[in-house]
Design a binder for these strands. Structure first.
Lengths: 328, 328
DNA sequence: ATCCGGATTTGACATTTGTCAACGACGATG
DNA sequence: CATCGTCGTTGACAAATGTCAAATCCGGAT
């Protein structure tokens, strides 16, 4: 965190160029370096978050679907990505939109809880570098080996790095062999403290998980296919911060959930702003369950999913994807 | 506030260019318009705050002087502009730095109180356009005709416009002819409400005023030179939100102050974050008085002023202007 | 003192972006 | 119905920026 003197010149170049609006050659002249260096410094400044360029996410909140979801589920804000030709598939747009929404939501001084999963990884990847002060990023749940590019702890750290924040990882695995071991571990002071710190968060980021052969928990070997089938028979519908919920969004009463080290649901709901992001199309049931459990206050999803959600909620399904007064 | 459909295309262009990193010609192709139009839209997007580019103000907080001022006066954060060759004079840098610091401090949902004055005008001018949600900008004190480019109410409105915020002006003059009239006016429900709303602010922006022939209050004719002399004899040292304070930062007990419509000092101090900005060199005494009165929690000033402040406070005056490990 | 490897800087060139006059569509006006 | 003025768009050119190989600098090892 110490301020390295090499940053000085980069900072000055960025200030002159972006804030004062000088041209690169003028900056070069002022700082007595070549213009090529200025271009290089400016790139570094952008990469380091010394300058941050952010695009408003308003476009995606103006959608009628977004408002209907807000109303139907009592959410504070919803962002919807339609097929506006921005990408091949609207779902591909989700991570960068979510990253932008998330950045808009993070204030200096925040303590941010993040769960992990494929979607959260993608968001971390898409996130711009920003220069927040006194931000802490904490994991909402224990760790697991990951079959994807990031490990959970790397994911937290990557988000922290992009925000210029402290990153705190859970010093525990997500799921343990026995209930007893999980209980013992939860009593360890270090872990206790980390769990208690969760309700002090001011912002949360997570994605609802599904339960099928391709799910994260299965792929990592934390849960076997036979046990999965048994849990589904018991009503398992989705995963929130590593814990299995039923269709009503309540913690499923099962052995698996008791072997978990993760955030207490009430602690999660005590966090004032909770951004949930849904990318994949197969998450409808998990999404409904998560909404029923009131885990989210803010939501990012595709138009397709939004429509299915409203249809499922019995709100009709006119394909009013258009913006307020579209034209075409 | 309604979302105009013309904004749509601008928004999409901005999203593709800034968030997705496409080139202008690629964006043009996607949206089926000419590249020249894309360039035009992007400029509009920047001007409208749809994209915002901000430069970190860290450079100016790392200064040793800044930390010493923080410590000496118990401030939360201090930014110092040295003569780093950014401009002819460090003071010229103050408005753009203050504008950047201010923008970093404004969060969505904030209610921002602003006083006015030459410095605040300059800050408004230097401020980039940003796209905040649910922000309200209110005046901290009544109005006055201005000899400068902005009128106080225009100043508030301009800041509001740049933040995409609501702007609320005081429906009263700053200073009235008689105490009685001021008291009557303060009892008017509209005014009462505006005054009461001040302590609900979450952020304040102001600059300490001086008392001399060139001061705002004099130039506007609100105060005559003879009365000024009398007030100075009584201990008048500076002006905060239109009200005269003594060297200890307390409201001066005088007729003039009783004829004012402005924020109560306790209401101002009830605002959690209060950014004070000092630009001109002749404001040392006013600055000291304002600090003594604990009006500010955050401060922006020049290195020159910072040194004089520390010298005056008897903290020695070694000219350690250098950053942490400068070189040159 | 000399050599080496890596990081930093630069000049030159290719690419991208900003600008502006010219054009055309549209609505208001005589 | 013609005319004017405004606004949005575009093509073409000028200006600014990004990039990369080559040159230089720097610190440590020999």
């Amino acid at each position: 965190m110490a301020y390295r003197s090499a940053d000085q010149i980069i900072h000055k170049a960025a200030w002159l160029y972006y804030t004062h609006g000088l041209r690169q050659d003028e900056v070069a002249q002022r700082l007595d370096i070549s213009r090529a260096s200025v271009a290089l410094y400016l790139r570094r400044a952008r990469e380091a978050g010394i300058v941050s360029i952010s695009t408003s996410t308003q476009l995606f909140r103006q959608d009628r679907l977004a408002r209907r979801i807000e109303d139907s589920f009592g959410l504070e804000a919803v962002w919807v990505v339609g097929d506006e030709g921005l990408s091949r598939d609207a779902a591909d747009e989700i991570p960068s939109l979510a990253a932008n929404v998330f950045l808009e939501m993070v204030n200096n001084g925040d303590r941010v809880g993040v769960a992990w999963g494929r979607t959260v990884y993608a968001i971390a990847d898409a996130m711009a570098h920003a220069d927040r002060q006194d931000v802490t990023v904490v994991e909402l749940c224990g760790n697991l080996g990951s079959p994807y590019s990031y490990r959970p702890d790397q994911c937290t750290m990557e988000i922290a790095r992009r925000l210029n924040a402290r990153g705190l990882n859970f010093y525990a695995p997500l799921v343990l062999a026995t209930e007893q071991l999980a209980a013992d571990l939860r009593r360890e002071p270090v872990i206790r403290e980390q769990l208690d710190g969760i309700s002090a968060c001011t912002l949360a980021l997570f994605s609802p998980g599904t339960l099928n052969e391709d799910s994260h928990v299965i792929k990592c070997g934390a849960l076997g296919l036979d046990e999965l089938a048994r849990l589904k028979a018991m009503g398992a519908t989705g995963v929130i911060a590593g814990q299995i919920i039923d269709a009503r969004g309540a913690l499923l009463d099962c052995d698996y959930n008791r072997r978990i080290i993760s955030a207490d649901f009430d602690a999660i709901r005590a966090i004032p702003r909770r951004l949930m992001v849904v990318q994949e199309d197969d998450k409808l049931h998990a999404l409904r369950a998560a909404l029923a459990g009131r885990f989210a206050t803010h939501l990012v999803l595709t138009a397709r999913m939004a429509e299915r959600l409203l249809a499922a909620a019995g709100n009709g399904t006119d394909r009013t994807n258009a913006q307020e007064e579209d034209g075409r």
